[in-house]
Deep mutational scan, measured.
Amino acid sequence: NQESVVAAVLIPINTALTVGMMTTRVVSPTGIPAEDIPRLISMQVNQVVPMGTTLMPDMVKGYAP
């Protein structure tokens, strides 16, 4: 099972992602793959992401799977 990126904290809208904001977990449905965390650093979320929420591609500005 592939791990997906999950919010480790509440991430406010338009916040640039940092390593500490993200964790990984096997979830269903799957979100952004864990191995993409290095690509996500400094990208901004386009909505509020509650802690424990799986990051989906459409939540991150400029992210393309």
Rank of each mutant, 00 (worst) to 15 (best):
residue 2 Q to R: 02
residue 17 L to K: 01
residue 35 E to V: 06
residue 13 I to C: 04
residue 8 A to C: 03
residue 13 I to S: 06
residue 18 T to Q: 10
residue 19 V to R: 07
residue 42 S to C: 05
residue 49 V to H: 01
residue 38 P to V: 08
residue 12 P to Y: 06
residue 15 T to S: 10
residue 62 G to I: 04
residue 18 T to M: 11
residue 65 P to M: 03
residue 49 V to C: 04
residue 25 R to Q: 12
residue 30 T to F: 06
residue 9 V to Y: 10
residue 29 P to C: 05
residue 16 A to P: 12
residue 22 M to W: 02
residue 58 D to S: 15
residue 20 G to P: 10
residue 10 L to A: 11
residue 56 M to C: 03
residue 33 P to D: 05
residue 12 P to S: 09
residue 13 I to M: 10
residue 59 M to E: 01
residue 57 P to E: 12
residue 56 M to R: 11
residue 63 Y to W: 14
residue 33 P to W: 09
residue 13 I to R: 08
residue 63 Y to F: 11
residue 49 V to R: 02
residue 65 P to C: 05
residue 23 T to W: 09
residue 30 T to K: 04
residue 46 N to P: 02
residue 49 V to T: 08
residue 21 M to L: 12
residue 27 V to N: 06
residue 65 P to L: 02
residue 40 L to I: 15
residue 18 T to I: 14
residue 21 M to F: 06
residue 37 I to M: 07
residue 45 V to G: 00
residue 37 I to C: 04
residue 41 I to T: 15
residue 24 T to Q: 11
residue 65 P to W: 02
residue 31 G to T: 02
residue 52 G to A: 04
residue 5 V to S: 02
residue 37 I to T: 10
residue 30 T to S: 08
residue 49 V to F: 01
residue 62 G to E: 11
residue 17 L to S: 01
residue 48 V to I: 15
residue 4 S to V: 02
residue 4 S to G: 04
residue 60 V to Y: 01
residue 4 S to E: 00
residue 6 V to L: 05
residue 27 V to Q: 07
residue 37 I to N: 02
residue 42 S to L: 11
residue 47 Q to N: 13
residue 38 P to I: 10
residue 34 A to E: 15
residue 26 V to Q: 13
residue 35 E to R: 03
residue 26 V to K: 03
residue 63 Y to K: 05
residue 46 N to A: 09
residue 55 L to K: 00
residue 16 A to Y: 14
residue 65 P to S: 13
residue 26 V to Y: 06
residue 33 P to I: 09
residue 14 N to F: 10
residue 31 G to M: 05
residue 12 P to F: 04
residue 38 P to H: 12
residue 30 T to Y: 15
residue 38 P to A: 08
residue 33 P to S: 09
residue 64 A to V: 13
residue 3 E to M: 05
residue 48 V to S: 12
residue 48 V to K: 08
residue 12 P to C: 04
residue 11 I to Q: 00
residue 16 A to R: 09
residue 8 A to N: 07
residue 39 R to C: 04
residue 1 N to A: 13
residue 6 V to H: 03
residue 39 R to H: 15
residue 52 G to W: 09
residue 58 D to F: 08
residue 21 M to T: 05
residue 48 V to D: 04
residue 16 A to M: 14
residue 32 I to R: 00
residue 10 L to D: 10
